[in-house]
């Protein structure tokens, strides 16, 4: 009652109880399990580090998805057959020049997609960090967003292109015959329908992206995998921190899957 006696939690109590067993190396299975849980989650409020790592993973993933969607959609449009072969013959110098630029961009988009899909994300991350941003001191989160976003864009481009191609040609014709420009037809008529048919593949891509951000631990960004690595380097547990990180990834992915499933049902109800 003199204040020196602090009330200790039940977790601390159990930890004290298994101390003799740790010294003598005589823990049974359940005691060992508790030792792992205590050391890797409870001790030193380590669970907070997983949550912080999770926060970074979500932050990077969210913005990388936005970058990937925006850039990927542009790449997809550049790769459409009617854009690849665009011609403005006889429409004047500027229109011709524009067509030449668009055709060049289309070629570049194809090259870019092959390059990004043909090399490992890890290499891209390392090159962007140690090469392109080799002497620029910016937040690693930004580097992560750029690297993962640029990579994802290549995959998104192919998904969106597939989605656009799956929309019947008659839809474009109907839009154009009303007098809508090709851009407006794309925005108001084709893309909304393409998005719907691309949604399942897109969901897959988002899931991959979230998990692939784990590669950013290589550039010392403390995201969820790195948080597990860090705790493991402090507690020397063989795999417990990875299981905690893994469960957190799983919960994020399952939540995302559920949300997209809901969105898909809503889209289905609204038309077909």
């Amino acid at each position: 009652m003199n204040g020196a006696v602090e009330s200790i939690s039940i977790f601390e109590q159990w930890w004290q109880n298994i101390q003799p067993g740790i010294q003598a190396n005589t823990l049974n299975f359940w005691e060992n399990l508790y030792k792992e849980i205590y050391m890797n989650i409870i001790q030193g409020d380590r669970w907070l580090q997983y949550l912080k790592g999770l926060g970074v993973t979500l932050e990077v993933s969210f913005f990388a998805i936005l970058v990937g969607l925006a850039l990927g959609t542009i790449l997809a449009i550049l790769r459409l057959p009617q854009v690849q072969g665009i011609s403005c013959k006889g429409k004047g110098f500027w229109a011709n020049l524009g067509a030449i630029v668009v055709r060049a961009l289309s070629k570049f988009a194809g090259f870019y997609i092959n390059l990004m899909r043909g090399t490992p994300l890890l290499l891209q991350v390392l090159i962007i960090n140690f090469g392109i941003f080799g002497t620029v001191r910016i937040d690693k989160v930004i580097i992560g967003v750029i690297a993962c976003g640029l990579n994802s864009a290549a995959y998104v481009a192919e998904i969106v292109r597939g989605g656009i191609m799956s929309v019947e040609k008659g839809q474009t014709e109907a839009g154009r015959s009303l007098g809508l420009s090709s851009l407006r037809t794309m925005i108001y008529i084709i893309l909304p329908q393409a998005a719907k048919s691309a949604l399942p593949s897109m969901c897959n891509e988002f899931i991959s992206l979230i998990k692939e951000t784990s590669i950013l631990s290589y550039i010392a960004l403390t995201e969820l995998t790195k948080a597990g690595d860090y705790i493991r380097s402090r507690t020397f547990s063989a795999f417990t921190p990875y299981i905690v990180s893994g469960l957190l990834y799983l919960s994020v992915v399952l939540t995302l899957t559920w949300l997209i499933g809901k969105l898909e049902r809503r889209l289905r109800n609204s038309d077909h």
Partner: peptide, 25 residues
């Protein structure tokens, strides 16, 4: 003539297709 803005002319020419081509969304 490629220099003509075809969109303006299409506004004045309505078209109806065999397969309707309504916008399903």
């Amino acid at each position: 003539n490629p220099r003509v803005n075809i969109n303006k002319h299409r506004e004045k020419m309505g078209m109806v297709f065999q397969h309707f081509n309504l916008f399903p969304h």
